[in-house]
Design a binder for these strands. Sequence first.
DNA 1: TTGAAAGCGCTAACAT
DNA 2: ATGTTAGCGCTTTCAA
Lengths: 319, 319
Amino acid sequence: MVTLKHIAEKAGFTVSVVSRALNPRPDRHARVAPDTKARIEEVARELGFRRNRGAEFLKRGKSPVIQIFLPGKAYSQTADLMFGMAEAAAKEDFPLSFSFGITENSYSHFLQSAIRNRSCGVLAVQPVMAPGFWSRFEPAIDSLKMLSLNARSASPGHVPVLSIGYQEAGSLAADHLVARGCARLAVIGRAPQRILGFQGSARLKATPVHCFQPSETTALASWIREAAKPVGIFALTDILALKVIRHVQRLGLRVPEDVRIVGHDDSEFAVHLDPALTTIRQPYREQGREAVRMIIRMMYGETVDSKIIQPALIVRESA
Amino acid sequence: MVTLKHIAEKAGFTVSVVSRALNPRPDRHARVAPDTKARIEEVARELGFRRNRGAEFLKRGKSPVIQIFLPGKAYSQTADLMFGMAEAAAKEDFPLSFSFGITENSYSHFLQSAIRNRSCGVLAVQPVMAPGFWSRFEPAIDSLKMLSLNARSASPGHVPVLSIGYQEAGSLAADHLVARGCARLAVIGRAPQRILGFQGSARLKATPVHCFQPSETTALASWIREAAKPVGIFALTDILALKVIRHVQRLGLRVPEDVRIVGHDDSEFAVHLDPALTTIRQPYREQGREAVRMIIRMMYGETVDSKIIQPALIVRESA
DNA sequence: TTGAAAGCGCTAACAT
DNA sequence: ATGTTAGCGCTTTCAA
């Protein structure tokens, strides 16, 4: 429980000097001598000082708590995101508060609560919102530092976006399947961006793409039977891939000889399937870490740029 | 951003009275008149007041942040736990800080950090610790309110434990398999408590149990071939169950007619297997919620009792 | 039963 | 470049 006061006493300065020396964003009008700064930092290290974030932000009329809004459904992905966020936040002693929801309404509640709690850092996987949504929150919303994750709707003013490369995922899948000799491609599932990326890359290779809904497994089966082998399928989740593999094997066809399958998510079970699933791993954990790092910078007044984190293709046996 | 001050002004009292009226744990020496309390609570509700936890605990020389230590590995379960904790904490405006680790050493780091941060609430899935571990933290550890989750090692003094019913899980599996006519039972995987519960219940029904390591799939296969049908298998994770189903089907046997299989975890993919997996669902999410509720009570000085939360058998097609 | 006042750890004017 | 001071929102003596 070492405070600025302890450091001040030991180093022979006042608390304000110590505060300035250790402040992550020193005011240009409040400098300390280099020697002083070095000395104070040394003492702080010796004593194992960790700044009390609550007190720091209390003084600023704010809360250090980073408020986070996530979809309460998609399991492993959300979990990964949370893991990453928790890691990065713990490192800097920033507390977290998670809320879950998928509707515009629950998001609205969340924002109100963030404003009431004087939180200045907000991380959100935003639901699809009606136009005019943001006007409800003016002008309080401007006091919030926000970072949007995988944005689908427009955000107010200049809210930066940290995205996962969904289009790129589709692209990777198509390129891989074509490279493995598939002249006929299909995609099953609902995920506009991934489909877009898949179609885009397939078009470049002049390869036709058929799209199927998750429920259209029989339609997919007959398409598979008729198409020239080998055929390539991009399943938009690993669960779908699991189902497709089962169907293909029931049809008496072989994976990957006749049908090559790429999944998406790199779920825990993917490696245990037979054949082991080739799939796309999204760096959710890294996205979580980066999101927290970015929002912390924003909480200290920096501006950050939007960016996209790229996925990786994990090649196993199914394609 | 409504504070005690706003309420005080509107209700016509001083801040101290408002504080006492709204305090979750009012001192017996600091009562307010029932009318006053009612009036103040009304105003607080009207204004949508939410207590600033940071300031509240700052005054007490503590931090409101609940520090949480979890194994960084087992995915879906840990995620569920986190979901539950996050839900309960958000409801009461308590911030969270998660740390991940599995070694004694990382746990030691975590505790030191919790002490340094003046956190009074600690939730931990404790690793296995050497005897004498706790003496390193005396007497600072006593200032921490701790709740242990699924404890395996002893904790200092009277640290309560909130457990998952692992033994009960084994019990449920054995009872179900016997009720479904299995006269021969096996268990595959590593999880002492679940195995104990399984064996215990099987013994009561005078049914023999064979134990297999996760790697001993061939040994399991030959055991299956020779045993009188139907045979019952308890797979200690759903992933193992997936593998066993595959092996059984390759042997030309049918699930569940010849071999009945019960998994554990109720993973996302369990329902999509063929046949759909009968499995045991552990209430991790509820455990997370309850853990946070308990630790909050402890942070306010209440004492809580250890307890066990019971799992449920989800009957599908495989047994 | 209520009010006045001090102070938790920290930051940010303002003064020196 | 450093010191002094006030105050963030809240709890908690101490007095009335």
